[in-house]
């Protein structure tokens, strides 16, 4: 298999398989999780503004008072790499074309220099977050193989994508193919690892907001 065939495979059957497993996994996991259900709370609720599931879904995106000071690396690193990933994934022109071709939706992208800068910052933030996971006693204590594994799988697409655009190390074709392959790996493992938080985070926040909101506590 030469590099063009490799690229063709990852762009074609490879991506088909990855998206297939991804969709399969997402649906399976969502149903598996949320079909467990929840008993209705029969205690008469207390109503107060801002105490609801929906509020919490959004409110939790903002750090609680004092927490940034307690854990600056987790918060700032986390924000930077999540926002960075979102910018790279959704505002890089080739990605928009991909999404347009898959879904028919499109929007304007950012100049590639900006994306380039964002990529470097994102990679930096992810490295910082990794260093923190190694250094911080709590994170180190909590970390399992899955944490290191998912970090790698998230890091690789950004790294390979950036290297492909920059023409580093390997020929563009090979690098692009590796980039797509790494994205495919990410798609495949996403539903089955903690990366699935990308989906369940909304459910979790909504439950939290609803359970506490019932007692009149906006959380």
């Amino acid at each position: 298999m030469n590099e063009m065939q490799f690229l063709t495979w990852v762009r074609g059957p490879g991506l088909d398989i990855a998206i297939g497993i991804f969709l399969l996994g997402v649906l399976w996991r969502l149903i598996e999780i949320y079909s467990l259900g929840r008993k209705v709370d029969v205690a008469p609720g207390r109503h107060r503004d801002g105490a609801s599931g929906l509020h919490t879904v959004f409110r939790r995106s903002v750090p609680p008072p004092g927490m940034i000071k307690r854990s600056p690396v987790t918060y700032i690193g986390g924000y930077v790499f999540h926002i960075g990933l979102a910018i790279i994934v959704f505002l890089f022109e080739p990605h928009i074309i991909l999404i347009r071709d898959l879904t028919g939706l499109s929007w304007p992208g950012l100049p590639s220099q900006v994306i380039d800068l964002v990529s470097v910052i994102t990679l930096g933030a992810m490295l910082v977050v990794l260093a923190d996971r190694i250094k911080n006693p709590v994170k180190r204590y909590l970390s399992t193989f899955a944490d290191w594994f998912t970090w790698t799988l998230t890091f690789l697409p950004v790294l390979t994508g950036w290297m492909a655009v920059q023409h580093l190390l390997l020929p563009y074709t090979t690098m692009l193919a590796l980039h797509i392959l790494s994205v495919e790996l990410l798609l495949i493992v996403l539903p089955f690892t903690k990366l699935f938080h990308a989906f369940t985070v909304f459910g979790s926040r909504w439950y939290l907001g609803k359970i506490n909101g019932h007692r009149g506590v906006p959380v």
Partner: peptide
């Protein structure tokens, strides 16, 4: 006692340690 919120919570945890 395990229900959907519990399942959702465990799947959401990213071991951030906050």
């Amino acid at each position: 006692v395990i229900d959907a919120p519990v399942a959702s919570y465990f799947n959401s945890c990213v071991h951030c340690g906050l």
